[in-house]
Design a protein around this nucleic acid. Structure first.
Lengths: 119, 119
DNA sequence: TTTTGTGTTATAGTTAATTAGTACACTAAT
DNA sequence: ATTAGTGTACTAATTAACTATAACACAAAA
């Protein structure tokens, strides 16, 4: 479910962690009021320092996504799960793109460009 | 065509520059043997220091995408343009996603997840 | 040969991200 | 009251990214 961070991607670890957690919420693996694993466990899972975990969680708090309870744990505060239709739209495209031999990075670059141009 | 870098995204500027140039190549705005604008101009366009431009261009050289000619300029060495069909696949999805009220960041997060799961 | 336009290199300083290590603070169960 | 499990805070040090500034090196045209 939760995976380690990629330390060679150039993307700051705390950003990656934020995104991983957001993703888990969006696909429904984490729902409102669910408790996160303890920070000392997250630290091992993501393979980073506690402070880095804290930075990620603090920012997710600021975004209203998490809530901290001192001495207890971190909880999902706001969770808007993505509709299955949305996943399906992407699944269809991804299949076609993979068949065309396109890789993920290329797809993201083109996607950003297309996003800007489509009305 | 070329846009300034987003200094608040958390993504290192040199990575953003690399991606912008790759994107221009993929959509066909830059073709093999085309010359890039001079580094002192790129510096202004991207709103960064020369050294940061250099770092991006050096790495693109290492990836075999650019070639430097001292005293002359930077040239596109390898350019594989994306097929229009691929763009169309994404355009169709993007339209649907926008209509569903999904934003770009969310799309990218879900896309990465879907990419991992689709065979 | 000089000038202009280009890439290249180097130094010094700043800031952000990350780590290690330690200690403290709150909560709930015993 | 104690303990175990949790979050929180702080200091010190390291590294990567970035900036400003300046100088140097090569190529082509005047």
């Amino acid at each position: 479910m939760l995976r380690a961070v990629d330390k060679h991607s150039g993307i700051p670890a705390y950003l990656q962690i934020m995104n991983i957690i957001k993703k888990e919420i969006m696909i429904g693996n984490l729902k409102e009021q669910d408790q996160l694993p303890p920070v000392r466990e997250l630290q091992k899972t993501f393979n980073v320092n506690v402070n880095t975990v804290m930075r990620a969680l603090e920012r997710l708090q600021m975004e209203g996504i998490l809530e901290a309870q001192h001495g207890v744990g971190y909880f999902i505060k706001e969770s808007k799960m993505i509709k299955p239709e949305v996943i399906e739209i992407l699944e269809k495209s991804v299949k076609e793109l993979k068949e065309a031999g396109i890789d993920l990075n290329t797809t993201i670059l083109i996607l950003e460009e297309v996003w800007r141009n489509v009305k």
